[in-house]
């Protein structure tokens, strides 16, 4: 058993030396393509063998003919299977980030610069998932390399096989490919997160309100739905100027801080999950939020780009050494 593990690891190491990760476009050369008979191919070979045996036994020329034809066809088909991969261009296009537990779908562009259609190309991963396609001459196609994720962090695309069994399914040619591309896996959003922290305006500033309204009054504008009651200019209403809202030189501090420290004493991953849930919730409610991590602070803002920035920070948060 140990020997087997050792042999396996040696084989894998050898494969990695032979097929180092590729940046950009990989053009499949003969050196990168491996080929072996499939189980169907072995059955086929057995059949040819039996046909030839009976041909010998009965001294039957046509049986010899059929046996030799099938055997020769098998050999020719082997070349075709190998050729079916030869010269293909493989380019990694990256993947959209996902949350841990979801499946990353790395996009891989297969290009056929050749003159012949390539049939039945398969993208095989260890998970046994397959994406198949035919590639006409001169065409290129984007196929997906699905990778289930478990943990947050940067996820580099796994080694996969580009394989085919065309034309007769007697041989399987494959090329182990490791493309240098990675994608982010965000923490899994927590299901039972505490409520989103309130703004400073909700809590701390109530006191300053009472202490005499130090914010600089800037002007009035028509009331819009959603303006805080506190900002309604009662004087203006009294002057029958309608419902107006007081504007201040500095907008009221509506910024929420999603703070790592506030979530103590939970474990780091739990905190990240909660932060992730908060970010998503804030974003869906169009709130303005900032993120405070021990090593990084992202100023409050909102919008898709901001969200990505925050989630990225969560994804790349240094993992605690166990």
């Amino acid at each position: 058993m140990q020997l087997r593990t050792w042999a396996n690891s040696q084989y894998r190491a050898w494969m990695q030396r032979r097929n180092p990760p590729v940046r950009g476009t990989l053009s499949l050369t003969g050196r990168r393509i491996y080929i072996l008979p499939t189980s169907a191919g072995l059955v086929f070979a057995l059949m040819v063998f039996i046909i030839l045996l009976s041909a010998m036994n009965y001294s039957n020329s046509m049986a010899f003919g059929v046996g030799f034809l099938l055997g020769a066809m098998g050999l020719v088909a082997m070349h075709h299977t190998h050729r079916n991969l030869l010269g293909l261009d493989v380019t990694g296009l990256g993947a959209e980030p996902v949350f841990a537990g979801d499946t990353l779908r790395f996009r891989v562009r297969l290009g056929n610069p050749g003159r012949k259609t390539r049939h039945g190309l398969e993208l095989d991963t260890n998970e046994g998932t397959r994406d198949k396609c035919d590639l006409p001459a001169g065409a290129s196609k984007v196929v997906f390399l699905p990778c289930p994720t478990l943990r947050r962090g940067a996820f580099s695309a796994p080694r996969f096989h580009l394989a085919c069994r065309f034309p007769l399914g007697l041989f399987r040619a494959w090329s182990p490919i490791k493309l240098e591309m990675s994608a982010l896996v965000y923490p899994q959003p927590a299901d039972d997160a505490p409520a989103i922290p309130a703004t400073r305006g909700d809590q701390g500033h109530r006191a300053s309100d009472q202490s005499g309204g130090q914010e600089d009054f800037h002007g009035l504008r028509d009331y819009r739905q959603g303006d805080p009651w506190r900002h309604i200019s009662w004087q203006a209403l009294a002057r029958e100027q309608g419902l107006t809202t007081k504007l201040f030189a500095e907008p009221l501090d509506e910024r929420r801080w999603l703070d790592w420290e506030s979530l103590a004493p939970r474990s780091a991953e739990t905190r990240l999950s909660i932060l992730c849930r908060w970010i998503l919730d804030c974003e869906s409610r169009h709130l303005v939020y900032g993120l405070r991590l021990p090593d990084k602070t992202i100023a409050p803002a909102s919008g898709a780009a901001h969200r990505e920035r925050c989630l990225q920070a969560l994804a790349l948060f240094p993992r605690e050494e166990a």
């Binding site: 010998m56 036994n57 009965y58 010899f64 030799f68 034809l69 055997g71 020769a72 020719v76 075709h80």
Partner: peptide
């Protein structure tokens, strides 16, 4: 496939040593 297999088949047919009698 068959046409490409044909030359191989002919070589095999002509040269594969034929044994007399049944096995």
């Amino acid at each position: 496939l068959m046409l490409q297999a044909l030359p191989l088949m002919l070589v095999l047919f002509l040269l594969f040593p034929r044994l007399p009698g049944p096995l």
